[in-house]
Structures are given as structure tokens and as C-alpha cells.
Design a protein around this nucleic acid. Structure first.
Length: 151
DNA sequence: GCCAACGTTGGC
DNA sequence: GCCAACGTTGGC
């Protein structure tokens, strides 16, 4: 099973929101970046996903979710009332995809970004590269193991 | 709130 | 196809 990381602003959707309804799939929609979308399309049911809190007081990896439904057309792109509406996307040929995630667990504590930066072996993680803006990214098995081993 | 880094847009 | 202008992301 592949490993991934997705960013979220906890005001929008935090790990606690997942934990509050642990049996309810969470549609991961609103991704409007082609590179991130292409990674969404590679996700398989059963893959594990780090939930990363960004643009907030406590920045870092907060927990783990699991993919329960692989990529499907993101309905928000066709919804004129959605902030993610894309008037240039046609239903015959949707531009943007979503996946469904489900809560797996919170980490014992949030792993802050500055600690992640200090862990050896994570250089390939796009999250830690300067100027990185990718909101969906792959995590190598090695990186996954290194992060989980850091408590 | 600031601003660097990046992706996208659109004129040419 | 180039590239300047613009809007957005996201850490600080």
C-alpha cells in the first residue's frame, strides 16, 4: 500500500474532525493543482495518508487516515455555489478529482514541522523543500517509517 | 500582516 | 512558445 501526505488547514478540516466521526468517509475535494490532482489519481483504496495541519498555530503531522474510495470526479467543480467551482470544467471531461478518506488514528502527539526538518533521511519529502506548495504528495516507505519512529 | 516562492494566465 | 503580471500558498 502506498503512503501519502495531505495538507489541511485545521479550521477547515482537522484530525479532530476526522476523529469525531471515525466511521464517516471524508471527501477530499477542492484540490486545484494539477500535480496534486495527479497524485490523487494514483491513490488506491487502503493507502495510508498523513494528515498535516498547515497555516495554523501548531503546524505539523497530526494523524493518519486511509483511502476508502479512489479518485472520482470532484463534484464541487460543477457547483456554482462552491468556492471550488471551476466554470471551465465540463461534466463530459472533469478536470478535478476527489478521493474519500477515513479516520485511522491520531498520532500520540503532533509532530511539528521544525522537528521533521531535523530528522535525517527526509530530504526527498516535498513538504520540507523550500517554497513547497504541493498539497498532496507521496511519502516513501523509508520516510514514513522514519516519521513514525519519531515520537 | 509580511513576503518569498510558486503555479497559472494571457498578451504578444 | 515565451514571459511578465498576477493570484495563491504557507511559514514566520
Amino acid at each position: 500500500m502506498a503512503k501519502w501526505l495531505v495538507k489541511t488547514e485545521p479550521d477547515e478540516c482537522s484530525i479532530d474532525d476526522f476523529a469525531r466521526a471515525p466511521d464517516t468517509p471524508v471527501p477530499w475535494d477542492g484540490v486545484r493543482n494539477y500535480q496534486a490532482r495527479n497524485f490523487l489519481r494514483q491513490m488506491q483504496a487502503g493507502d495510508s495518508v498523513f494528515i498535516y495541519h498547515s497555516s495554523c498555530r501548531h503546524i505539523g503531522i497530526a494523524g493518519i487516515a486511509r483511502v476508502v474510495r479512489p479518485a472520482y470526479p470532484d463534484p464541487t467543480q460543477f457547483d456554482p455555489t462552491s468556492p471550488y467551482h471551476d466554470p471551465k470544467s465540463r461534466p463530459e471531461q472533469p478536470r478535478w478529482d476527489a478521493v474519500d478518506l477515513i479516520f485511522e488514528r491520531k498520532l500520540p502527539r503532533l509532530l511539528p514541522l521544525d522537528e521533521l526538518r531535523n530528522l535525517p533521511g527526509l530530504a526527498s519529502l516535498p513538504l520540507l523543500r523550500k517554497g513547497n506548495r504541493l498539497s498532496v504528495m507521496p511519502v516513501s516507505e523509508d520516510a514514513w517509517r522514519i516519521i513514525l519512529a519519531h515520537r
